[in-house]
C-alpha cells in the first residue's frame, strides 16, 4: 500500500510540475505587454518601464516561472495587475462560492445517481429500467447552463421561490447562502447525475454477469443480498473513475453556471481577468483548478486501492 501511495504521489507531483509549465508557457506567449495595456496607449515609455519592473516583468521567463511557482507553494499568488491587490485574497474570497457549489453538486449528483442506477440495474429490462434510462438519456443531452436558465424561469421568475441570481455573502447566514446556491447546484448536478446513473447501471449489470455472483447465489444468498454484498463494491471500480472525471467537469460547469446566476465565484473572476488582461490572475486561477482536478484524481486512485485488494497488495 505504501509503495502504491508513493508512486501515485510521485505521479501527482510530476503532473503538477508539467501542468504549471504548460500554463506558464501559454500565458508567456500572449502577445502584448500587460504594463502597456494597463497604462493605455498614451503612456510614457519610462512609466511603462517603471511599471514593468514594479510588476517584475523585466526578469527572465525562467526566473519569473520559479518566482511564480515558489510563491504559489507558500500561498502567495502575486499581485493582480489590475486591482493591485494580492491574488491570494481575490481567489480566497471567490473560492468560498465556487468550491461549495462544486461540492454540493457532486454530493447531489452522487446521491441521486447511486440509488437510481442500482434500481435500474437490479430491474434490468423492466419498465422501471426503461423509464429511468429514458430520463437519464434526456438528462445527458441537456446543457447545464440552459437547464439553469429554465430553472430561473420557473423557480425564480414565475414561482419566486428563489432569487434569479447573485450571492448575499456567507455573512448573511448559512441558510441565505445555501439558498442562493440551490438552483446553481441543482442545475449542475442533474445532468451529471444522469451520466453517473448510467455508468452505475452498466457497471452493475456487468458485475451481475460475473461468475462470483453465481457462486454467491449458489451459497443461498437471495438476489438482493448477492447484489448488496458482492456486486456493489465490484461495480464501484468503474464508477470511481467517472466520479474523478466528473469533478473536473463540475469545476468547468461551475464556471459557466456562475455566469448564469451572476455568482461572484472563480468563474466570474477568470472571465473578468481575461477581458482586463490580468494575466497573473488567469494563470493562478487556471493552475488552482488544475491542481484541484489532479488532487481529486489522486484521491480517486487511493480510493481504488481501498476498494480493490489487488492494487493494495501489488507491492
Amino acid at each position: 500500500m505504501a509503495h502504491y501511495v508513493l508512486t501515485r504521489l510521485l505521479s501527482l507531483a510530476i503532473s503538477l510540475i508539467v501542468a504549471s509549465i504548460v500554463i506558464f508557457a501559454l500565458i508567456e506567449i500572449i502577445p502584448g505587454d500587460p504594463a502597456a495595456f494597463m497604462l493605455g496607449i498614451n503612456a510614457q515609455e519610462d512609466t511603462v518601464a517603471a511599471l514593468r519592473s514594479e510588476l517584475g516583468l523585466d526578469a527572465s521567463p525562467v526566473a519569473r516561472y520559479f518566482e511564480w511557482v515558489g510563491g504559489m507553494v507558500t500561498g502567495d499568488f502575486g499581485t493582480s495587475y489590475t486591482y493591485r491587490t494580492p491574488v491570494t485574497e481575490m481567489i480566497g474570497e471567490r473560492l468560498w462560492i465556487s468550491l461549495p457549489l462544486a461540492l454540493i453538486a457532486l454530493a447531489l449528483s452522487t446521491l441521486i445517481a447511486f440509488p437510481v442506477g442500482i434500481l435500474a440495474a437490479s430491474r434490468r429490462g423492466s419498465m422501471t429500467d426503461t423509464v429511468i434510462m429514458g430520463f437519464t438519456q434526456l438528462g445527458v443531452a441537456i446543457p447545464n447552463f440552459w437547464f439553469a436558465m429554465l430553472m430561473v424561469l420557473v423557480f425564480a421568475i414565475n414561482l419566486r421561490w428563489f432569487s434569479a441570481g447573485g450571492f448575499p455573502g456567507w455573512d448573511e447566514g448559512l441558510v441565505a447562502g445555501l439558498k442562493a446556491l440551490t438552483l446553481p447546484a441543482v442545475s449542475l448536478a442533474l445532468p451529471q447525475a444522469s451520466i453517473l446513473a448510467r455508468v452505475m447501471r452498466s457497471a452493475l449489470v456487468d458485475t451481475l454477469d460475473e461468475d462470483f455472483m453465481r457462486t454467491a447465489r449458489a451459497k443461498g444468498l437471495t438476489r438482493g443480498q448477492a447484489i448488496k454484498r458482492h456486486a456493489l463494491r465490484n461495480a464501484m471500480i468503474p464508477v470511481l473513475t467517472i466520479i474523478g472525471l466528473q469533478f473536473s467537469f463540475l469545476l468547468a460547469g461551475a464556471i459557466i453556471i456562475e455566469n448564469v446566476f451572476f455568482l461572484p465565484g472563480l468563474g466570474r473572476l477568470i472571465f473578468q481577468a481575461i477581458s482586463q488582461r490580468d494575466l497573473i490572475v488567469v494563470e493562478s486561477v487556471v493552475m488552482l483548478l488544475v491542481f484541484a482536478v489532479i488532487v481529486v484524481n489522486f484521491a480517486v486512485d487511493i480510493a481504488y486501492a481501498i476498494v480493490d485488494p489487488r492494487l493494495r497488495r501489488q507491492a
Binding site: E210, F212, T215, R233, N234, D308, P309, R310
Partner: peptide, 8 residues
Amino acid sequence: TALNPLKN
C-alpha cells in the same frame, strides 16, 4: 473467476 476478488 468464481470468487469475489474484493473479499478475503
